[in-house]
C-alpha cells in the first residue's frame, strides 16, 4: 500500500448526486409503504451459485476455534426469512461483496438496492422497476422483450430449444476474438451470445430494455413455469440500459425441496471446477418450508445506476474510494 493517491476516486459533486439518489430511492419506497430493513452482512451460510464467489471471514471467539462467516453477495436469503416471518413488502440498500470481480464495471464491494413485493406479480414488479428508473434516474420508459424474442430477432435461433452445437457455431461465427477452442456448456454459449451480441445491440437503444422469461436452466431462485408451447422457462428478468446489466428479478420459487436440489447441483458443479463447496443456508430452506408468501423480488446495482445518471464510464468514478484505493 502506498501513501500516494489518498484522494477519493469520485468528485464531491458526484458524491452529492449519489446521496440524492439514495434519498430519492427511500422516498420512492416510502410512498409505496414498502418497509426499509437491514440484515446481517456476515452469514454462516453462503450462496452456492457456481460463478458467484463469497469472501470468507473468520470470527474468533476468545478461547475457541475460529468460525467461518461469509460476507453477503446479496441480502436475498435473510430478506426471504423476513418475508416468511410475515414482514410484508420490504426493501434494503445493502453493501454486498463479490470475490474476484474487478474491472471498469465491477468492484468487489458495491451497493445493491433489493426489494421484495408479495403485493406484486411478475409483470407488476417489472413495471415497478421501470417506474423507479424513470423516477430516480430520469430514464425513458423501458421496452420489454422475452429472451426468446431477442435471440430470434438478433441471432435467428430459438434459445430454448436450439442444440448446443448450433449455439456454439453461432457464437464462434458472430463473436470477434473468441478462439475456436473455447470450452463452454449450453448455458455458457447462451450467456456469451447474450453478452457479446445481444447486449451491444440493446446498448444502441435509447430506452432501457427488460428481458424476461429466461431459459429454465438459468432460473437461479426463480419459479419455473410452462409456456403455452409446453416449453419451460424461468420467471426471471433482467434490465439492461446504456450497455449495462442493471437489475435481476425473479418471481420467487416457493418450493424448498426444489431449491435444495438446485443448491446441491450448484455445489456439485463447484466441486467439479475445483471450487470450495458452500454451506447451504438451511435456515433459508426452513423458512421457505414454513411458508414464503408468493412474492417477486429484484436487485439493482446502484453504482451502475449512478453511471447512467452521471454519464461517467467506470464504477470507481461514482464510488468514494475504488477498490484499489480502499
Amino acid at each position: 500500500m502506498s501513501a500516494d493517491n489518498w484522494q477519493p476516486t469520485a468528485t464531491i459533486d458526484t458524491l452529492k448526486r449519489r446521496a440524492q439518489l439514495l434519498a430519492d430511492v427511500r422516498r420512492f419506497f416510502a410512498a409505496r409503504q414498502v418497509l426499509e430493513v437491514e440484515t446481517p452482512v456476515l452469514s454462516q451460510a453462503a450462496p452456492t451459485a457456481t460463478y458467484l464467489d463469497s469472501f470468507e471471514a473468520q470470527y474468533l471467539p476468545p478461547g475457541s476455534e475460529p468460525q467461518s462467516y461469509y460476507l453477503q453477495t446479496s441480502p436475498e436469503f435473510p430478506m426471504k426469512r423476513l418475508l416468511a416471518a410475515g414482514s410484508g413488502d420490504i426493501y434494503q440498500i445493502a453493501r454486498v461483496f463479490r470475490n474476484g470481480e474487478l474491472g471498469r464495471l465491477h468492484n468487489p464491494e458495491f451497493t445493491m438496492l433489493e426489494w421484495y413485493r408479495p403485493a406484486l406479480d411478475y409483470h407488476g414488479l417489472m413495471d415497478e422497476v421501470d417506474a423507479l428508473l424513470q423516477e430516480v434516474a430520469g430514464l425513458p420508459a423501458a421496452l420489454k422483450f422475452s429472451y426468446q424474442t431477442l435471440f430470434e430477432q438478433y441471432l435467428k435461433l430459438d434459445p430454448l430449444q436450439a442444440e448446443e452445437d448450433s449455439l456454439k457455431q453461432t457464437a464462434l461465427a458472430s463473436i470477434k476474438g473468441l478462439p475456436d477452442d473455447w470450452q463452454s456448456d449450453r448455458d455458457g454459449w447462451l450467456e456469451m451470445l447474450m453478452s457479446e451480441v445481444i447486449e451491444p445491440a440493446l446498448a444502441k437503444l435509447k430506452q432501457p430494455v427488460i428481458v424476461y422469461d429466461f431459459p429454465a436452466s438459468q432460473a437461479q431462485l426463480a419459479r419455473i413455469m410452462q409456456k403455452e408451447s409446453g416449453v419451460s422457462v424461468a420467471a426471471r428478468f433482467e434490465v439492461f440500459a446504456g450497455g449495462l446489466e442493471l437489475a435481476n428479478g425473479y418471481d420467487e420459487c416457493l418450493d424448498a425441496a426444489e431449491l435444495e436440489q438446485r443448491f446441491e447441483a450448484d455445489n456439485r458443479q463447484r466441486q467439479q471446477q475445483g471450487k470450495s463447496v458452500m454451506p447451504l443456508d438451511v435456515r433459508l430452506l426452513a423458512a421457505i418450508e414454513h411458508g414464503l408468501p408468493p412474492c417477486t423480488g429484484v436487485a439493482i446495482g446502484l453504482d451502475r445506476l449512478m453511471l447512467l445518471i452521471t454519464g461517467l464510464n467506470q464504477l470507481e468514478a461514482v464510488q468514494s474510494f475504488g477498490f484499489e484505493r480502499s
Binding site: 451459485a49 457456481t50 460463478y51 458467484l52 474476484g100 470481480e101 474487478l102 474491472g103 471498469r104 464495471l105 465491477h106 463452454s184 448455458d187 455458457g188 450467456e191 456469451m192 447474450m194 453478452s195 457479446e196 438459468q218 437461479q220 433482467e238 446489466e245 435481476n248
Partner: peptide, 11 residues
C-alpha cells in the same frame, strides 16, 4: 482490457 461477467455465468 475489459473484465466481463455475463449474467450469472463465467467471467
Amino acid at each position: 482490457n475489459e473484465f466481463v461477467k455475463p449474467g450469472k455465468g463465467q467471467a
